[in-house]
């Protein structure tokens, strides 16, 4: 039962290129609420599965069904899981099915959180901030700096499949140490940049000028003497607190801030700086 079903196909360079192409340009097209990236995972490796198991075999149907099950991870790391998976399937064929299913379910969560924090939050935050800062002055160069950075990320996404295929699960352990250090460093830069953004990108000031006797008191100027940019810092602090409340979503927070700002502006307390 085992010998005849152990596949003999070896993946070629062309296979890796095809998987990478499908992953980069197609992995999430089928995203849906029921099984999220399930069909995308199958689509990415379908030609290789056909070569490993052979068209029309019951093994192929079984493994295709395995790969359309629920799957969701970072689309910046998905081919690491694919690489580890194919190394197993190529060697063990359908006997490796349970191993593969377990490995996919076991790794997708941790890669999702690392991938989201680095590639969906930190990099866009840092480069988005630089791009937005230049854009505010009418300069589009920052946008292109960001695009160049994303192209570097694409190269990284392209390379990882081969590395994962060669090194298997051992890669995850060697990588996790490096990634932890990298994530820590990246969050430091992220926090630093948020501080910088608070100080530059919230252009609002006190407009309220109560009269002391007959002399109007310039509140903004008095505050500038204590600490410039105090008002933006207070606003961010306030919203940070607001977001920590129960039942608060980012969309609700945006609308609350919008309405409160319009009211305070109408009352003459704050104005665009």
């Amino acid at each position: 039962m085992t010998n005849s079903k152990t596949p003999t196909y070896k993946l070629t360079d062309q296979d890796f290129r095809q998987i990478n192409r499908r992953s980069l340009f197609g992995f999430q097209l089928g995203w849906n609420y029921e099984r999220m990236q399930g069909s995308g995972y199958l689509y990415t490796i379908l030609p290789q599965l056909r070569k490993i198991y052979g068209d029309g075999t019951p093994e192929l149907k079984k493994i295709m069904k395995t790969h359309t099950q629920f799957f969701n991870t970072s689309n910046f790391f998905n081919t690491i899981i694919t690489g580890i998976d194919l190394a197993v399937e190529e060697k063990e064929g359908i006997n490796g099915e349970e191993t593969v299913a377990g490995m996919k379910a076991g790794l997708m969560g941790s890669f999702a959180s690392i991938g989201d924090s680095i590639f969906a939050a930190l990099i866009p935050a840092i480069f988005g901030a630089i791009a937005a800062n230049m854009a505010e002055k009418g300069n589009p160069i920052g946008v292109f700096i960001w695009i160049v950075a994303q192209i570097a990320v694409m190269v990284f996404r392209w390379k990882q499949l081969r590395v994962a295929y060669n090194e298997g699960v051992a890669l995850v352990t060697t990588m996790s140490h490096r990634l932890a250090a990298l994530t820590n460093a990246a969050t430091i830069m992220g926090v630093f940049m948020v501080g910088a953004l608070v100080a530059t990108m919230i252009n609002v000031k006190f407009a309220w000028a109560p009269k002391v006797g007959t002399v109007p008191l310039d509140i903004q100027n008095s505050l500038d003497m204590i600490l410039p940019k105090l008002l933006p810092a207070l606003i961010v602090g306030g919203i940070y607190w607001l977001l920590g409340r129960k039942h608060m979503t980012s969309t609700r927070a945006i609308f609350i801030v919008l309405i409160v700002s319009v009211l305070l502006s109408a009352l003459g307390l704050i104005a665009k700086g």
Partner: peptide
């Protein structure tokens, strides 16, 4: 004017979310 002021304050939401 109020909407313009709100437009200037809105980035604060993005920063606060990021801090969370």
């Amino acid at each position: 004017d109020g909407l313009a002021t709100a437009g200037a304050v809105l980035p604060a939401v993005g920063f606060a979310i990021l801090l969370h």
